[in-house]
Structures are given as C-alpha cells and as structure tokens.
Amino acid sequence: MLPKKNITLIGGGGYLGLNIVSKLQAETDAEYSITILDLNLVPLENPDIRIDYKTIKFIKGSFCDLEKLEVALKNAEIVFHIAAVGVMGLSAGDREQIYRINIDGTRNLIKKCQEFGVKRFVYASSIAVVMIGDPIYNQSEDEPLPAPSQYPTSYGYSKAAAEKLVLAASSENFKTCALRFRAIYGPADPNATRRVVDLIKAGLFISLCTRNKHKREAITQASSINNCTKAFILAEKMLEKPDGPHGKPYNILDANITGSFDFWGPLIEALGFSRPTFHMPFWFLHLLARFYEFLCFQVFKTNPILTSFELILLTTDNTYSLRNAKQDLGYFPDDGMMTEVAEYYSKERVETCSSSAMSFFVVLFIVLLFLLTIFLV
C-alpha cells in the first residue's frame, strides 16, 4: 500500500498549480491527499493533462485570510507555496499590494505552517531575485543576492525578501527550499505563453531588439511547465530525506540556452507568421515601454502587453547554473517543450498580419510624436 501524504498548494488553482496536481496524482511512489487554497480553481484547457478534480479539496480564498489558511493547513504535512502577485498585469504597478502579499503574506504563512506542524515547504521563487538588468552568465545560487536598492521592480525585491524568509526558517522540523523559475511556459498556459500568442496574432511581434555590443539577440533559458512540475516533486522528496539538504535555493530551467527572440520562433511560424528581422533600438523601445506602463497603470488601469522590465529581460544575457539542482534534487531537465507549444497553438493559425502590423506602426508614430512634444515643450 502506498504511503499517504497530505499536501496543501497555496495559490494552486492556476496553470502551474494544477499541472503540479496532475503530476502528484500520477506519482507511483506515494499517494497524495491534495488541498488547494486559492481565489479560483481554473480548469486546464490542455486535454493531455488529466486531473481527478473529485479528489481535490478546494478552499476558495486568499492565503492572507488567516481563517481560510488555518483550514487549508489542517493536517498538512507538505506545503507548496505558489501564490504571488506583481510579475505581470495590473498588479505589477501596485507596490503596496506586492509587498503585502508576497512578503507579509509569506511571513504569516511560514508562521502558520510552523504552528500547524508542517514538515516540508517548497517555495516558488523567481530568477527576478538576481536579475537587476546586468548580464549574468551561468549564475549560481551560491552567489549573494543584490542589495535591495538595486532591484528595478517591486516584484523582484519582494520575491528576494520572501525567499530569504523561507530559507532562514528552515530547520530539522520544518525543512524548506526555494525553486527559481524564469518565464514558465507550456501548452494552454494562460499567462506568459498566451500573451505572446496574442502579440503574434495581433501582428505586433515584428521587431528584434538588442543592446549588447555584439548586436546579437540576448541569450537566456526558460522554464517549461514539465520541468517545473518535475522539480516540485523532486524537491519534496529531497526534503523528506532525514539527512537531505534544506534551506537552499535552486535554479529550475530548461537545459538548453537559446536566443530570447529565437526561442519563440517555432510558435511564430506555427501561427502562420514570419520570424522578425527588423531591429528597433533599445533606448526607443524602453522609453516607449515606460510611457506605456504609465498609461496602463496610472491612466487606463489596464494590463500592459509588455513592461519595461520584461523588455530588459528580453534584451539582457541571463543564463543559470543547474549544478546544485542536479546534485541535490536529481534534477536533469529536458531541453524544453516549444515544439509541443507550437503544435498546440497551430490550430489558431492566422494567415495574414499586414493590417495589424500597420496599426502598430501607426501607434508607434503617434506615441513618438507625443514623446517629442513632451520633450520639446
């Protein structure tokens, strides 16, 4: 008979959380009793991912609601903390909310987990904890984090602060670790992948942008949903070992290093478009992104298609060492799954983009005139 493990996923009602649930339910080494605490439980659109929803206990609410949190943690042996705000969307412009949920919320969650006797705690962190806009190569988790004043976004600062809280709390009775992801993507992903799909279909993925002296696109790594879910299972098993390591962060990314624009090439072609060859200067796009952010966050209260920090990520070399994850977790990632992503979205193929592209150039022209007006007045 398989051992029974009680696990609670904080913020587990979305794409990452439910893919983890599917992985847990398919496990052959143990049987998991699964509880999810989240504001919503959004069914996955990918028919290849099978989930038995009847066996999941879903608690609707925020983990900042202590009453709901206590119910979710009752009898929990393992906690996966996935909940966070500010990485994209309108919340990215709300520093107070980002700090309240990502930092204060995590601090309270740790305290409650310790009170309720949770044994193992895996935190979904981000490479934003080390990314301040400078090129990094084969970045190891052993290197110190940047100073708080160096973070270009509230999100990056908040994730670093929360990660420190999680790792500092680790003990023999409450073992923790943090998994650092970058650009989680996959078939039916409603977040990063969906945004890129919509960008391509609107004819707006029409330009490359570089800012290095070699005039080439930046190199990077991403985190496929398959590699992410694999890492959570491996981390939980590592923390279960009596003499296993704990209190450490791990880079969780695909094995292959790719160009940040070339990475999306198969998806662009699957949707019926050509890969971009036109180059725009970084200074112009960054200025445009900053102005666009201001309009979205302060004026129209809507989600920006692309933030200035995302543009920095796209145009800055950033690669990461997987040595510690391989050594401690036994994490040996796949190259990635862009082929599967392209195949999934190929049914949304669009035959032409000329009118959308022309609209984009018109918008750029108008915005440029507006910016020139500001500087010349």
Rank of each mutant, 00 (worst) to 15 (best):
M1C: 10
A26T: 05
D38R: 09
P43N: 10
N46K: 13
N46G: 13
I51A: 15
F58C: 08
F58T: 12
I59C: 14
I59M: 14
D65M: 13
L69W: 00
E70Y: 10
K74G: 05
E77C: 01
F80Q: 06
V85P: 05
G86H: 00
N102V: 01
C113W: 03
F116I: 01
M131N: 07
P135K: 00
I136Q: 09
I136V: 10
Q139N: 06
P148A: 03
P152V: 01
P152W: 00
A160K: 01
A161Y: 01
A161D: 02
C177F: 04
R180P: 02
P190E: 08
L199N: 12
K215E: 12
E236I: 04
P242Q: 04
D243T: 09
Y250R: 06
I252W: 06
I252V: 07
F263I: 05
P266E: 05
F273Y: 14
F278E: 10
F282V: 10
Y292V: 06
E293W: 11
F300H: 09
P304A: 03
L306H: 02
T307C: 02
S308R: 04
N318E: 05
Y320I: 00
L322R: 02
N324G: 06
K326M: 12
D328G: 03
D335R: 07
A357N: 07
F361H: 05
L369D: 07
I374E: 01
F375Q: 12
